[in-house]
Design a protein around this nucleic acid. Sequence first.
DNA 1: GCCATGGATTGACATTTGTCGATATAGATG
DNA 2: CATCTATATCGACAAATGTCAATCCATGGC
Lengths: 116, 116
Amino acid sequence: METLLAPETRTGAPCCEPAGGPALDAIEAQATARVLKALSDPNRLRLLSIVKSGEGGEACVCDLTEPLDLGQPTVSHHLKILVDAGLLNREKRGTWSYYSLVPGALEAASQSILAL
Amino acid sequence: METLLAPETRTGAPCCEPAGGPALDAIEAQATARVLKALSDPNRLRLLSIVKSGEGGEACVCDLTEPLDLGQPTVSHHLKILVDAGLLNREKRGTWSYYSLVPGALEAASQSILAL
DNA sequence: GCCATGGATTGACATTTGTCGATATAGATG
DNA sequence: CATCTATATCGACAAATGTCAATCCATGGC
């Protein structure tokens, strides 16, 4: 369940690969696609957005169910997908589960597109 | 690394909402998800990568079928999805169809993640 | 005109995905 | 303990997705 996205499987360089690099192989493509697939649903994008703009950068499920107009099990399911993709963090405090962005995860996903 | 270049699809404000900006609405989320969904398949990522690193930034279907180990109809299908998403351009020259990246499209997709 | 070739389209099929209702679990509260 | 509340998980189901084989459409060469 450790599906954290590989930060720089491409090159050792931290950024800015020049044009003309070799095309990605099947393994890299699959890893990148796994994260982008988690981002490819409108409701999950809204979840991330709400969490990001939430108080203290976090939100609990009860804050997320109503604005999306989805059932609680469905929201929980989407949140699990985002956690599994390494994009969200879950912290349980009392009865509530608080979700927050994994620092740098969205930036890494963004970079993976530019690195094509 | 501020959320720059939020296109005018966002709010009336031109740019740079502070951290507490409003979350995306359903319409924006759907539009962003449509592009990211096109990017959420490993074979399509490889197609984009091969096209990008191809001679003159373009490639025809015959160049793409073999490295992906997929049938020609399947490759054509994926290419259509990428064209429909506004990521690839198709130009027919003679018998061949040449595909090339739409300038700025990948950068825009990348930004749409940061703009969450 | 006829045929070969590159590519798009169609139809079918198995797999995955998004959603919901029902149920289970875990912490708080009486 | 009994119960309520917030979440997670399970089972089901319709819809979407990725793939292939077969077929159709253009274009170029004879």
